[in-house]
């Protein structure tokens, strides 16, 4: 299954190893220091004292030098390991097989594969080194999928690079890590890692315009203000303030992870997005019940 060069470790693994090393060192220091402290309390507490005055020594040059030098040595080791891992998680000179653009919005994600846009769900081929070029459309966000390793801040006006390498197929959960306003908590990410063939098929679908013939529901949508914020390729809807909906039905969740994506949830979301995501930048659009039903079905059918 492993299609990446054996010399390249997924960043998460590299960090994991380093964390264990640093963790063990820290644990040993912890035991040493707390042990010394507990010993001092136990051995020298007054109630245990067998007469006599307290000692009065108050200096020991050698000891001072020793406990200055020992931490310095330990830290030097940690620092060298740090440098190595830093290079590794950036890709260790192995070029990326693919570049994807990720843009943070309050409070959803936009992903772009050479112009093919999608939202909130990032699909990548498993085992392939990928450079995610992250940026932001408004405030600072931060792309974080713990099982894929490090995070990277997304700043407006700046493009940062994050190396991704998914070790196994499946879905990875993540979330925006930099506080970005009222709905920061519900700015979740799903990364779907799939085999190269599955991925290619998925990308081909995404590149196509919308694939439905429910023109009646489509007219309802096009007649509403939805079009000022959303794009559905193949129709006149070309807004960019909200997620691209061309294939919204293919995603697992709605509202960047706040509810699952099925007809009932979709209807509820359209009826009152503020109920699920108070403060989200999608208004509640007044729609009749029949329109809601039609729209919900239509949108979910946009696979």
């Amino acid at each position: 299954m492993q299609s990446y060069p054996a010399t390249v470790r997924p960043p998460a693994d590299a960090i994991g190893t380093l964390s264990i090393i640093v963790g063990v060192i820290a644990l040993l220091i912890f035991i040493g220091v707390e042990g010394a402290l507990v010993f001092a309390i136990w051995r020298y507490r007054a109630s245990r004292h067998l007469g006599g005055e307290a000692a009065t020594f108050e200096r020991n040059r050698r000891l001072e030098i020793a406990w200055t030098a020992a931490p310095a040595l330990i830290l030097a080791v940690i620092f060298i390991l740090t440098l190595g891992t830093m290079a590794e998680i950036n890709g260790a000179g192995v070029p990326a097989a693919m570049r994807i653009t990720a843009t943070g919005h309050q409070w959803w994600w936009e992903f772009s594969y050479g112009g093919v846009k999608t939202a909130n769900e990032l699909h990548i081929p498993v085992g392939t080194p990928i450079d995610l070029e992250v940026s932001s459309a408004d405030v600072i966000h931060s792309f974080w999928v713990p099982d894929l390793g490090p995070k990277k801040d997304m700043l407006p006006g700046v493009t940062n690079r994050l190396r991704l390498l998914a070790p196994r197929a499946g879905s990875y959960e993540g979330q925006c890590a930099e506080f970005c306003g009222i709905e920061h908590a519900w700015m979740r990410i799903r990364v779907v890692a799939q085999s190269q063939t599955e991925f290619d098929a998925w990308l081909r679908t995404q590149a196509e315009p919308r694939t439905t013939s429910d023109t009646k529901a489509e007219q309802i949508l096009l007649a509403n203000i939805c079009v000022s914020c959303h794009t559905i390729r193949g129709t006149t809807a070309a807004g960019t303030a909200g997620p691209d909906l061309t294939h919204v039905g293919g995603r697992a969740t709605l509202g960047a992870g706040v509810i699952p994506n099925d007809v009932a949830s979709m209807r509820a979301w359209l009826a009152d997005p503020q109920r699920y995501k108070p403060g989200a930048l999608m208004p509640s659009v007044p729609l009749s019940n029949t329109d809601l039903d039609a729209l919900a079905n239509y949108l979910v059918s946009l696979k």
Binding site: S19, G23, A26, F30, V33, T85, I89, P150, K151
Partner: peptide, 21 residues
């Protein structure tokens, strides 16, 4: 000491990138 040691782990860049924020 516990807080200081976790501080040092945060100074290790790759670990910080994993757990910052």
């Amino acid at each position: 000491v516990i807080g200081g040691l976790s501080g040092v782990s945060l100074a290790v860049v790759p670990i910080d990138l994993a757990v910052t924020d």
